[in-house]
């Protein structure tokens, strides 16, 4: 019950502070914090989904613990976002298909250790004494209290920080990543940091995509990172042009189609998962 109250408190606070623009914001936060679980039938219709999600707010949000050798597994297979409350009060929004593990017994004792496979947004409850560390096969991210997006794949680990500072550890080296910065560690040793003023790696959750003179191939990378959209160029003819855009949507395909169309690039869906596309077009000026 306390979880629900926390949520409501948070929402009401937002609601009172700045109602007009934050309804949507709030709703998006709501999206993220929902624990949709199995009762939720995935719907593609955004409005119905939203209504359902809003109704669900009133329902108990739960998390499912699968005890397996002392490891707690948080796995989101819903096709939607799922928000989980961790025992230390931190919360995590997991993208569908992502898995988070932590030790049921050790977590939040001396430290807070988790492993991530997939993508998640962490809002870490401040606790200077117990460092919060998310690891993947490639490296780890160590924080004390902050909010960040973490994408952990088999060969790369990418963090994009929305609040505070995190420490990215990879191959025995460390890199400090501040708010509105992103860093990518690739298996094999490289670690790169860049500005992330638009927090586009959060888009899978926030729906906020902002491009500013962004090359088209970078746009494709964002779409891939956020939603796993895979684009291939037909005949290996690639083409690049800068784009400035602003979207709040989770419909990645529409964004792809729009931006591609800006330069007359044609998008054809390949496969049935709605994530694979073939691009054709000549880069006409």
């Amino acid at each position: 019950m306390s979880l629900e109250q926390n949520d409501i408190d948070q929402l009401v606070k937002n609601y009172r502070e700045d109602f007009t623009p934050d309804v949507e914001q709030g709703l998006r936060a709501l999206h993220g914090r929902l624990t949709p679980v199995r009762r939720l039938r995935p719907r593609n219709n955004g409005r119905l989904y939203a209504i359902a999600a809003a109704v669900l707010l009133l329902l108990t949000a739960g998390y499912f613990v699968f005890a397996d050798r002392g490891l707690t597994e948080l796995r989101n297979d819903t096709g939607q976002l799922a928000t989980y409350e961790l025992p230390d009060g931190s919360s995590v929004v997991l993208q569908s298909g992502s898995v988070l593990h932590y030790s049921a017994s050790d977590f939040n004792t001396a430290e807070r250790r988790l492993t991530l496979d997939g993508q998640g947004f962490f809002e870490v409850a401040p606790d200077a004494d117990r460092p919060f560390t998310v690891s993947s096969a490639v490296g780890s991210v160590r924080v004390t209290g902050t909010a960040f997006n973490l994408r952990a794949r088999s060969s790369e680990l990418e963090v994009e920080v929305s609040e505070g500072t995190v420490l990215l550890q990879h191959a025995g080296r460390e890199m400090q990543v501040k708010a509105r910065e992103a860093a990518l560690a690739v298996d094999g040793g490289s670690m790169e940091r860049e500005e992330a003023p638009n927090l586009n790696h959060h888009a899978w959750r926030t729906g906020e995509l902002r491009f500013d003179h962004t090359p088209f191939e970078q746009v494709l990378v964002y779409l891939n990172d956020n939603w796993g959209i895979v684009c291939t160029w037909k005949d290996d003819t690639t083409c690049s042009f800068p784009v400035t855009s602003s979207y709040h949507t989770s419909d990645a395909r529409s964004v792809l189609e729009d931006i591609a169309e800006l330069n007359g690039v044609k998008v054809r869906s390949t496969g049935t998962d709605g994530k694979h596309f073939e691009l054709t077009g000549t880069c006409s000026k």
Partner: peptide
């Protein structure tokens, strides 16, 4: 709290529409 929540939900719905 319940009232606030309901209001919020209603607001969200309007906003979505």
């Amino acid at each position: 709290r319940l009232l606030c929540t309901l209001l919020l939900v209603a607001g969200s719905l309007v906003s979505l529409l």
